[in-house]
Amino acid sequence: MPRLEGPVHFRAAGFAPKDRAWASAATLLGLLAMWQASASFGLIKSLFLPPPVAIATALWHLTVSGELWKHLSASLMRLFVGWTLGTVFGVGMGLAVGLWSALRSPGMAIVAALFPIPKIALVPLFIIWFGIGEGSKIATLAFGVFFPTVIATAGGVDNVARGLIRMGQSFGLSTGAIVRGIILPGALPAILSGFRVTTSIAIVLLVAAEMIGAERGIGAFVLSAGNLYDTDNLLAGIVVLSVLGLIVAWIIGRLERALLSWR
């Protein structure tokens, strides 16, 4: 019979990745430093890829001249209005689809048919419907945000434990009280993680829509800089978009922490 002797070793290490904020920052800063260094030592031509310092300078000029704010404010307004519209209607439709059989199959059929359409392809149509101004851009965003929100919300509603809903019914709660007290909060984690997806989609669509017939907006600015091969300004615009994405993600993170503190 084989003999076993000796201490028992700990073997449950790993598979538990930790978040380290300093490592994220260090990675980005390290990449920036390498980028700048390769430009400074002449390894990369500045038209080919402008160095960080040039981009920062361009950003600075854009900020002091008020040019940046002109474009950014137009973009933020579209982003806010378009995303909010898409989200409000999307959550409403997702709840309806998740709650009522009469709406479920028709709603999901519509979503399945329209979700895969690249919304950019519809921009000309939206321009005809809503005009070349703000209407078509906001519609593009709202439309793009609507479908993933429906899917996230309906999925969240489906995943609310049936036992909790039965509990509410057994206490004689009204439908409204069950939706407000049990279903919405139960679906909230799924809805909020949907926000992460839809805000990114919204930013992508925003830029695309602004590239088609807009004078103001980060997308329009990036496009005109690109047409002139003004790569400093082009990348400055892209940095603004990236920072915008980071800020939005941070806001959603805060929202999750505030609303889902029970987890």
């Binding site: 036992g163 909790l164 039965r166 509990m167 509410g168 057994s170 206490f171 004689g172 709660l173 009280a177 007290g181 049990i182 909060p185 139960g186 909230l188 889902l260 029970w262 987890r263």
Partner: peptide, 25 residues
């Protein structure tokens, strides 16, 4: 609520405090 259940699996809302769970009904 004349006929009232006590559930085997408790059926508590995880997002409400103890008092909040009672308040719901």
């Amino acid at each position: 609520n004349p006929l009232t259940y006590v559930f085997q699996d408790f059926a508590l809302l995880p997002w409400r405090s103890v008092a909040g769970n009672i308040d719901l009904v």
